[in-house]
Amino acid sequence: MEDIALETRKTFLEVVAFRVANQDFCFDLKSVREIRGWTETTILPKAQPYVKGVINLRGSVVPVVDLSERLGLGATDPGPRHVIIITVLGNQTVGLLAELVSDILTVAETDIQPIPDMIDETVRKFISGVLVMDDRMIRKMELSTIIASDGRGLG
């Protein structure tokens, strides 16, 4: 009886799963506005290396962040097969450069496990948990640290 009660209280979450530097990541689908193919960016002077530049998203100027570089996994050499995940966090719209988008998954929040303590600080800053699905391990990305809402995170 108690088990059933617990079961129904489970909250589910839709996440978008994608690949960066051959690793699986995901974040809340609610933050995603659209997914588009790679387009050439306009380079921003004096920007952080992981800021690939800006693109025109229907009249808005949207910066693109190379997730691989941001996570310290090496710079991406973007080509037509790469995707830009347009995310909205607060008032800020930012594009995230990834290798491909694999799935949209519905997961229970309880399925997301905390990351072990031994993993170093930089990773812990960007990754808030781990989701194990079949034989895959999907890291849940902390969007707010990738894109600080005041823009400083990109600077």
């Binding site: 306009t42 002077p45 693109i55 025109n56 100027v61 949207v62 800020q92 990109l154």
Partner: peptide, 27 residues
């Protein structure tokens, strides 16, 4: 004139951005 600060931040030496005929952004 398009704001850079809405989604990014101010850049030294750059006033704003615009969109050119080819749809690309120019600073």
């Amino acid at each position: 004139i398009k704001s850079l600060e809405t989604n990014y931040q101010q850049i030294d030496g750059i006033a704003a951005a615009t969109i050119l005929g080819d749809g690309r952004i120019a600073l």
